[in-house]
Structures are given as structure tokens and as C-alpha cells.
Nucleic acid binder design. Structure first.
Lengths: 368, 368
DNA sequence: GGAGAATCTGGTATCGTTCCCATTAAGAAT
DNA sequence: ATTCTTAATGGGAACGATACCAGATTCTCC
């Protein structure tokens, strides 16, 4: 089944300022002044104003976007550079960003770089060519400095003129580790984020510092590191499965994020261990599905919505007033959300056996 | 900690065509002709061409986007209208769309309407003002006809000049129901999508038809309907919990999508029943996390990536050649992915008891 | 009544491209 | 020698809105 081409009669015969002015027997200047409510046209009497507005409404006059942008070189749009579009972190952040931008009559253009530096470079260049009024870097380690206002979210971009919206990772680490030690966990496994995620490096540094301060050992043989920045639980699943094959000398895992935590839980259960009875799992982010997984996920909640909103707000403020000084960093506070995936540490049957496999008791199959 | 405003020295002194032409001792016309490889300039000798390209590269000449677009009224960008940004369906679809658009040197502008008709109208109007070259409606029941090429994905938009990319819902229903009956399920509960999701209506019609054809009863008391088009498992959880409180006279649930299926599974397990031993659950979409949930999800896979790709391809083709005729509908084939959440139907102990509560055997608590 | 202020309006350059039309020069055909 | 092509380039008018700078009218005040 086929159908015709676009109906040309649908095309809105879009008239321009000149035609509108002619119809009103006024000059383009006057009409433009009125329509833009320009200060230079304060003196135009109300009768004229009303006539102009009336006619504009009647003819559905819309100023041409390109002509206007060409003239005053503002595009009323911003570029958003992200690693990719994926479940979890991004939908929440992007939703918040979008809602603020659209409300402020801005549009945004998205580009994903899949953590390839060349693409980050290429897209920021192409976006600049598009004359975006600002740039929002989400989880994007951009070395490049751009000639427009920019805000970096979870990116730790130290460039001048860039405001960084970041999480208080020290607090995040403290919340998670305190929760685990309160439950009696001492031997904790750690899952680091992929090396090309900037935020992951900062997070890890905080974890190491806080752990040391709290007297928690970070044993190399209990550390895993995600290799690809995959947003699938798969990677967390792999790592956890491999670690469990090696040894089971830990009672809790602190995962890089909720997505990898879901994979880790799956791996733990696959070996017949139970979460949280045998191993407690704690995630990071508090993605929407975290509350509904089986078991539901204890996690360090990033205020993602608030972070996205703040980033968008600051960006628009920077665009509106490029003279003003803005903070180089805005730190947001995480929050601990306790659910089912963490519980009291089991009494360990083999304290020493780093190389031994799990004892019978911890291997006890889950019924059903 | 504060830091200075945007460094003005970073600003790339972007020269224009006129200056470039002056430097080359050529006219703007010639330079433009060469740079655009225009057919009108076929006769320009290679030496001149080389000089022009050389200079353009040297001075980093970039044509001004607005001036160019104003002149030939093409924006090289398309608008993408979606209900919202959320987990599951959208990241996959959007990723595919984006990758094709950016590869073709198009950018895209996203707007979410949260299923409010007024916002659909407003955003498509505002996007038209932005002179997007085309519109991509994702799961968006747009009654409006636009003066640019459009492609509708899962939207069932019958407007002329719109290509609809849709799933073969008859096949989808057949795959799911055949799978369930093969496993011995006869009494199946159904979870319909929210009424404002167009695709959900078509899906339901297919299910009703196929069920009738296969002799499967669709009992009203086993039917649920999602009320909000929420992309959180919450809604599925609610519905399932309420149904289970009413009666347990079914051995399988066909959920609207994977997200609601995750909520349903959670609700089932919360009452002490097991998936799939007591109740089988089948989802829809095959979102990334479906393979990693506990239990992993049997689902009807939509070829989301392929659908997004096709939609983007057809849209760009329509833009490139508005004279050509395009199909009004492109139907994609779903696929059944069998995982752990479905299993053989349990031997029912109460065949008749539509109003009775579950028997002891089905209520048997899950150990652990 | 005339200078000057206040009020209202228009002319026109400008933003940076593209592209229709000329124009020139050289060679080919008559 | 004159016209006709063809090759190689330039002039300049759009595209549509904005904004500087004037010009014109009315009003105020001495």
C-alpha cells in the first residue's frame, strides 16, 4: 500500500515581516519593534500595538528562525553531549534537563560519543557550527574548551568557563560503607567503574579514602573493574561470576551502579547463594527499576533529577549573562536508600580461607 | 570557589566567505561553487579548486549555518517527538535513530509531550518554526498534519504523507499465546496498556482476535488495564497485587511490556507464589534488563533497533526526495524470546473456582 | 510664536550564503 | 574576419529579521 507525497496545500503560506508591514501600512521596523517588545519602541502607542498584534495573530505570523538567528546570532538551542542513550542514569537526567530547557523556550540537540574522544571532538565542533548557545556535557570528559558557556554534569571538567555539577562522592562512600559495617560486614568486595568514566575514578578515590579512614580493608583480590562502560547488567554479571569462581571470601559487594548490581545479584543467585542472606549487594544511582528488582536494591541515590535541573538552570543563566561569575563546581548530596539487597553479615565459617571455595553452609541452595 | 567568565580569546575568529574570497583574489561565487562542489561550477579548473580548498582548510573556514539555512531553507535537522525519555523502549529506539541521523550529517531535536495532546500540538508547531526538515513521531498519536515529511513509529498515524513503522501485532499475539498454550496454560490473565497508548490498542485488538481464533478465553475478571502510561514497574506491580487479592484463578499473565512485567513478577513473589512454577509471566519488548531480571523474562521481542533505524532511514529518504511515493506502512516482525519466567502450567487443583482464593498448594511459600 | 523636547515612524545597512545572470577570454567554426 | 561555443569568473540580488540613525509630527513652555 502506497500513498501520495506531502500535500502541498497543507503548507502554511507563511508570510514574512515585509508583507505583514505592508498590510498594516506600517514599516517593518515598527512591526518588528512591537512584536519583540523592544525598548527602542517604547513610544509606540497602544492602538498601533494592538493593530500589529491583531494582524500578526490573524495571519499566524511567525518570525523566520534562521533570519532572526543570523541577525542576532542566537540560536535558542543548546547542545547536549552524552556517552550514549541508555537505561538508568540518562533518562532521568535528560528528562530533567529537557523539561527546564523547553520551558525556557530553548531546544536541545543531542549527540552520543560512545566514549570515543574523536567523536567528542567532532560533535562539539559540529554543534558549534550549528551555533548552539551553550553546551551541556553529561558524563563526558571533554578536554576541549569551547567558546560558549558550558556546564559539565558528572564530568569533572576543569576548563575555565565551565561549571561542574558533581556528586559528593566522599559522602556517598561514607553512606554505603557505614551501612555495610553497621550490618557487620568487614570483608567487602568492590566493583569499580570502567576506566574511561571520569566520575568512576573520583568515586573510587573517595571509596579508597573513606575505607582507609574507617579501617576497612580493600583487598585486591576482592576488587573487580568493569572494562567497558556498558549499560547492560551483563558486565556486572560477568565480573561477579568470575570472582565467585575464584573465591567467596566476602560478605558484601559495593557495585559501581545499579545496572551492574542487577547483573551481580543475578550472578550470585546463579551460584546458589542468596542475596542478602549470604552476600549483601549495594548499588549506586537509584534507578527507577531498583525498587522493583528481586530482591529490591539497596543503593546510594544520586539526586539525578535535581542534578539535571541544576545543570540546565546554570547553563541558561550563563547564556543569559556571560559577564557574571559562576561557581566552578556545584556539589550535590547523595542519599542512602535501604532496601532488601543488604542484610546482616552472615557468621563466617571460614575466616582464613581466602583461597578456599565456599563452605557448604554458604552454598546451601535456595529452595524453589 | 568561583572562576572567571568565558575566555574571549578562545573564541575562534571565524572568517566568512567574503574574507576568504578576498584573500584568494576570487569572487564569493567562485569560492562557494568550489566548496559546495556545485554543478554550476563544473568548469572551474583543478588548480583553482585546490587553491580554494587549501585556503579553506588553512583558515578553518566553516560556512555560517544560519546564513546557509536562510538561503536554501534547509536546516539539516529533524524533530523527534516522544512521550518521554524513560527506561526500556526509548533508549534503544533513540540510539538507533540517532546513529543514523548523525551519520547522515543531520542533527535532531527532541521534545517530550508526556501524552498531553496540547503539548504534541505545541511542540510540533515550535519545531516547524525551527524549520526542521522532517518529523519523527515516536509512540505519538499526532492528529496534526505537518507540512514536512514525517515518519511515525508505533504511532499508527494515518495522515497522508506519513510513513508508519509498526509491529506485526497479530504475529506477536500468536507467538505469545502459542507459547503459553504449548506449556499447557489455558487460563491466562492479561494486562492491557494504558488507553492513551495507540500501540496498546492495536496490540489488544490482535490479542483478542488471536485468542478467539485459538479458543482461548479472555475472561473480564482476568483482565487488567494500566491506567497511566508510566514507565515504572510500579503500575504493573499495583495491578497484579490487586488482581491476586481478588482471585488466583490463572496460571499465566501476558503483560503489556517488560517494565510492567517486572512489577508483576515482584507482586506475584510478594504474595508467596513462584514464577514460573505457580504463575508464568510473559512480557513485551525485550528490553536490555529483561535477560538479567530474577527470574529472567520470557518476552515478545520488538526489533526496536531495527525499527528506529528504518524510521530514520525512511525519514531521510522522504526529505531527500519529496516527490517519490513512500509506503504508508512498514510492518516489522516480532520474535519470541523464551527465558525463565514461563514454564509448564501447574496442575490446577480447583478447576471451577473462579471466585475461590488460591489453594494451599499454590500458596505454598517460597523457601528462603 | 518659536525653540526644544517628546512621541511616533520609516529608510536602509547588515548578518553570510547561494545562485541567477553577466562578462571576459580563448578557441572553433563559418 | 566574423560569429559561435565553451571555459572561467564576477556582480549583485535575494533570503527575512533587526537596529542604527534620521525624519516627521505633536506637545510644552517661556
Amino acid at each position: 500500500m502506497t500513498q501520495g507525497k506531502v500535500d502541498p496545500t497543507v503548507e502554511r503560506r507563511t508570510l514574512n515581516l515585509k508583507q505583514l508591514a505592508e498590510h498594516l501600512h506600517l514599516s517593518q521596523t515598527t512591526v518588528s519593534l512591537v512584536l519583540n517588545n523592544a525598548p527602542a519602541g517604547r513610544s509606540i502607542p497602544q492602538v498601533t500595538r494592538d493593530r500589529v498584534f491583531e494582524a500578526a495573530r490573524h495571519f499566524h505570523y511567525r518570525p523566520n528562525y534562521f533570519a532572526r538567528s543570523l541577525r542576532n546570532s542566537r540560536s535558542m538551542s543548546v547542545g547536549v553531549i552524552v556517552p550514549d542513550l541508555s537505561d538508568g542514569y540518562f533518562p532521568v537526567v535528560m528528562n530533567a534537563i529537557e523539561s527546564h530547557l523547553l520551558k525556557s523556550h530553548y531546544f536541545y540537540v543531542t549527540a552520543s560519543h560512545y566514549r570515543r574522544p574523536d567523536l567528542v571532538e567532532e560533535y562539539s565542533r559540529r554543534l558549534m557550527e550549528r551555533a548552539v548557545d551553550g553546551l551541556l556535557l553529561v558524563d563526558t570528559p571533554a578536554a576541549i574548551t569551547v567558546p560558549v558557556p558550558a556546564v559539565a554534569l558528572s564530568s569533572h571538567n576543569p576548563a575555565p568557563g565551565v561549571t561542574n555539577v558533581v556528586l559528593d562522592h566522599d559522602l556517598a562512600a561514607r553512606l554505603a560503607l557505614t551501612h555495610l559495617t553497621d550490618l557487620g560486614h568487614q570483608r567487602i568486595a568492590f566493583m569499580q567503574g570502567a576506566p574511561d568514566i571520569t566520575d568512576a575514578r573520583y568515586r573510587w578515590i573517595s571509596i579508597v579514602n573513606v575505607a582507609q579512614e574507617m579501617g576497612i580493608e580493600i583487598a585486591p583480590e576482592r576488587c573487580m573493574q568493569l572494562q567497558e562502560a556498558s549499560q547492560s547488567p551483563e558486565s556486572g554479571h560477568h565480573l561477579m561470576r568470575d570472582l565467585l569462581e575464584l573465591h567467596r571470601d566476602f560478605t558484601a559487594v559495593f557495585c559501581f551502579n545499579d545496572i551492574s548490581a542487577l547483573g551481580a545479584i543475578r550472578a550470585i543467585c546463579d551460584t546458589g547463594l542468596r542475596v542478602p542472606q549470604d552476600i549483601s549487594v549495594i548499588g549506586f544511582d537509584d534507578i527507577i527499576t531498583a525498587a522493583f528488582s528481586q530482591p529490591s536494591l539497596t543503593t546510594v541515590k544520586q539526586p539525578l533529577r535535581q542534578m539535571g535541573l541544576t545543570a540546565a538552570e546554570v547553563l541558561l543563566e550563563r547564556i543569559a549573562d556571560s559577564e557574571k561569575e559562576f561557581p566552578a563546581e556545584i556539589v550535590m548530596e547523595p542519599e542512602l536508600i535501604v532496601r532488601e539487597s543488604t542484610g546482616p553479615a552472615p557468621r563466617l565459617s571460614s575466616q582464613s580461607g581466602k583461597t578456599t571455595t565456599a563452605t557448604v553452609s554458604t552454598l546451601q541452595k535456595r529452595a524453589g
